[in-house]
Design a protein around this nucleic acid. Structure first.
Lengths: 352, 352
DNA sequence: CTGAAAGCGCTAACAT
DNA sequence: ATGTTAGCGCTTTCAG
């Protein structure tokens, strides 16, 4: 209830007839303190209820021991599994974590970066917002030499090379589109958010590659760009309905939009997959709940988080020279009912 | 790229021929510095790229200017809207935020508290995990006199009174159950997580009240306790199927479990709402997507977060005596298809 | 209205 | 293997 005076290393030192520096070294397990002394120090620290003052430590060491994370949204199965992966690595290595979300806005991302910079993070993990057009807002971070690892939504900086953890979005886009083609679709719509964002432009590229490989002509009308959220489904479907030739397949660059689109198609009396087959991206929980269940691309969020964090921590804990790397994780097409028009070809599977 | 020396208040002082203390005061808008001097200080601080060193400031003031948040999960529409509300208040008032999740585990919650305590948070916002049986793990927080505000999942402490932001769960449980009764259900199952948690025990109480008011006899077999997640739906349904009398209504204490239950009921060939009507709780997005759409209880997460944060900040910024309060927000029954057996009585509405 | 000086708690040369 | 000393950058009495 009352704010007692905090126990400091001086209090411990006095009690043990040692100097503060010895106590400090002991507490940090410094190698040139006697084992026995270390034991005594830890014991009395414990007994006296000593709690390290991180402000003093950070002030002195000019390090915060904290890693910042910025990602587009927290309320997503996928992104929160990334967080879980990050957290496990970060706490295992004794770092702290500050998490912030950009809500798909570059302006908010800029604010987040400012806040994290002012908190003096030692390193940054970031997955960019969909409308982030450049990395200028990271300049303070780069200028101060704070290591950055990108995951999922990345962008290259002209001069500052950073490590990245990604999937092969071109290949994934190809796989999704190819699957629709194999299911007999030939007028396939691609729905994405801002193509400034690598994941959307690369999935588009994969889509184009598939069309090309299967000799399907490309119709620019079929490329739709909107927010990929719950509200955009209606808009997208109404655009589709206005086309003279109705499409027979939709590849949506995330599950949320695929689900919203399916809901709206059903409202309009259009059958999925018979009239239009749909494929999403991310394999979030709702993709199994919707009817028909959603065919989608799965990739491992937790693992992505773990690897990104481990990569950053390595950068933070090893000596120079900083060597950067790009890790590409595997993805996988999960076939469910929303795209299955030829049951014979491939049975739906629910293994993930 | 290079780690330049940071600009300090001494650098500013030197440039302006002032003392560091004047600069410090000026930067903090202290009232007894001349307006003109303040302006000059701010201008040159800006020009020199001065960034306050929070470690030094915190060390000196023995305050972190940081608020800690602990909640059960981040990957939930509801809880992330609470976060959004918290964030808006916190940043508006110049505090920082550390967010952590307990993943419905008291052990994890204990760790979170330890971490936040070591980060020397000035105040704590917490929604308890479902299996938190007591507040012993908060003792360090209470002992140091750190203000705590509970929201949603609360528990009373024998001696330390705290402010709370909640809904009337008894009433909400009553409303949900009454609705099922009005729809002709008489064997109504109540599905919840751990009843140590106020929200679940109170919703049960509301359920009991409704049964009593409508003279429906209470059958303890119909009270089911499990985790309320995606996996538990199967278990719950298989328990129901083993009953000699199949129930005709289910009140699930959250939407996730209601959805999982509906999916499994459908798998088993049981019709919703004809055979069994279902009501959930929270009004998350998926409740609108599932077929049939889910009747549920809505309550305002964002507002809950805003009020909780504002309450804490008031505690932090005003002088003693600390006066605590309890804010009860309104909830609302959203009727959708999963419970509608008598269309005449009340049409489904989708206004939220 | 402004300045001088002390000190928050810790770590790291530099001694011994 | 341990002690001495200085200083990280800031705020805040106390003094003018």
């Amino acid at each position: 209830m009352t704010e007692k005076k905090e126990v400091t290393i001086y209090d411990i030192a006095k009690k043990l007839n040692l100097s503060a520096s010895t106590v400090s070294r002991g507490l940090n397990g410094h190698s040139d303190i006697r084992k026995e002394t270390i034991r005594k120090i830890n014991l009395t620290a414990q007994a006296m209820g000593y709690q390290q003052n991180t402000f003093a430590r950070n002030l002195r060491k000019n390090r915060s021991n904290t890693i910042g994370v910025i990602l587009p949204r927290l309320d997503s199965n996928f992104q929160s599994s990334v967080i879980a992966g990050i957290e496990s690595q970060v706490s295992k290595n004794g770092f702290n974590l500050i998490i912030s979300q950009s809500r798909e806005s570059m302006a908010k991302e800029k604010e987040n970066i400012k806040t994290l910079f002012n908190s003096r993070i030692d390193g940054l993990l970031i997955s960019l917002s969909s409308d982030t057009s450049n990395l200028d807002h990271l300049s303070t971070i780069f200028r101060k030499g704070i290591p950055v690892v990108f995951f999922d939504r990345i962008k290259d900086h002209p001069t500052c090379k950073c490590s990245k953890v990604i999937i092969d979005n071109v290949r994934a886009g190809f796989d999704a589109t190819e699957h629709l083609i194999e299911q007999g679709c030939s007028r396939i719509v691609y729905v994405s958010d801002n193509r400034l964002c690598n994941v959307y432009s690369e999935r588009l590229k994969g889509y184009m590659n598939a069309l090309e490989q299967y000799k399907i002509s490309y119709d620019p009308e079929l490329i739709i760009e909107d927010k990929l959220n719950e509200e955009s489904g209606k808009r997208t479907v109404s655009r589709l309905l206005k086309m003279k030739n109705l499409p027979d397949g939709i590849f949506a660059a995330n599950d949320t939009s695929a689900v919203a689109i399916i809901c709206q198609l059903k409202n309009e009396g259009i059958r999925v997959p018979e009239d239009i087959a749909v494929v999403g991206f991310n394999n979030v929980y709702i993709s199994r709940v919707i009817e028909p269940s959603l065919t989608t691309i799965h990739y491992p969020g937790m693992e992505m988080g773990e690897i990104a964090a481990a990569t950053l921590i390595e950068l933070l804990t090893t000596e120079e020279p900083k060597i950067t790397k790009t890790v590409v994780l595997d993805h996988k097409l999960i076939v469910r009912k929303s795209s299955l028009r030829k049951e014979s070809l491939s049975a739906p599977h629910e293994d993930i």
